[in-house]
Design a binder for these strands. Structure first.
Lengths: 176, 176
DNA sequence: TAGAATGTTTAGTATTTACTAAACGAAATA
DNA sequence: TATTTCGTTTAGTAAATACTAAACATTCTA
């Protein structure tokens, strides 16, 4: 591999590391995805270690996170007990996977707590100032509705085949 | 304010703190928004201090972050030099503000670095293996296209008046 | 079964982030 | 001009996070 090639790849890896951090993920996650994404063939954990500069432990956990998000796939070669990883190149598939993941975990629980507050308010009829109760219910219900809308949008997105420019234009033209 | 009322409010504040952290924001941000959101009137910085349990410094910086995101508005009262803050209740407006904010800042810069890599690859004709160059260009171009699609989607969203259930259903029904 | 190869987990550390307390600056009032 | 009121900034600290190095468990091979 030429010096120039190497420099360009390094630049790309750093770029994705940065984007990764911007999205609140460890930069190692971005770096590993970058390494895999510009590799024409699946890479083993040790290859990831040498190409990313991270240690085995870090690669192990970060690449697992990537797999959970659907951004990389795990594969094996016959007669080789190493695990190999390759980048998912269908980003829409990855988005669907990520949204699905988030849906089921903390996001739902977090939203649940808002619903809980609402239930408590409904039950508190009589035990608190009625005007205030009405006000709080109205406000928190509006928040709840908003979360539901987000939830629905995310469900909608997971059903799309892609998010190409034409799709977006289509959406826009219809709603404008 | 009754004990019960207080307990319910506290529950709500904790809920939003949690959601805030889930979205990668300081929990103080969520707490402050919650306090403002369930307040029928704008609150001063000192009132936020007492109702959130944070110190002045923390409230100052966190509430400023909220204002930058468009989730709270600053206001003043005549003949009173305190600043007052109130929650934005139009969440779609807030979303537009947040997306607009993100757009212009780091996200653009991050994406720019991918574009940069692409340019370098284009310029590297001759100075590296041609097959590999073509491969890298193809891959990174695909990533670039994806980012552009996201960018367009976010622009599209900022143009929507709301994201109500009917809107989402409309999108779905058209694209399915 | 001993040894090697592989991936995961753990314990400790470094880094980053968000907070507190207090100093500060600016603006209003006396 | 001195004093008070208010918000911001700063310096230091606490907490959370992501990493490294090494121990560990498991599976394969000799």
């Amino acid at each position: 591999m030429t010096k120039e090639t190497n420099r360009i790849k390094q630049n790309f890896i750093e770029g994705l590391s940065h984007i990764s951090r911007f999205w609140g993920l460890p930069k190692g996650v971005g770096a590993l995805f970058a390494v895999l994404y510009i590799s024409p063939a699946p890479l083993s954990l040790d290859e990831l270690v040498s190409q990313s500069g991270l240690t085995k432990g870090a690669v192990s956990t970060n690449v697992r996170a990537l797999a959970r998000m659907g951004l990389v796939r795990r594969s094996t070669k016959l007669g080789d007990r190493k695990d190999y990883y390759e980048a998912e190149t269908d980003f829409y598939k990855a988005i669907r996977s990520i949204l699905g993941e988030r849906q089921n975990r903390e996001f739902d629980r977090a939203i649940q707590s808002v619903k809980e507050t609402l239930d408590k308010l409904e039950a508190a009829k009589g035990s608190m100032d009625e005007a205030e109760r009405k006000f709080l219910i109205q406000r928190i219900q509006a928040l709840q509705d908003f979360f539901d809308a987000i939830d629905n949008l995310s469900r909608a997105v997971t059903k799309l085949d892609s998010l190409g420019l034409t799709t977006v234009q289509k959406i826009l033209s219809i709603l404008k």
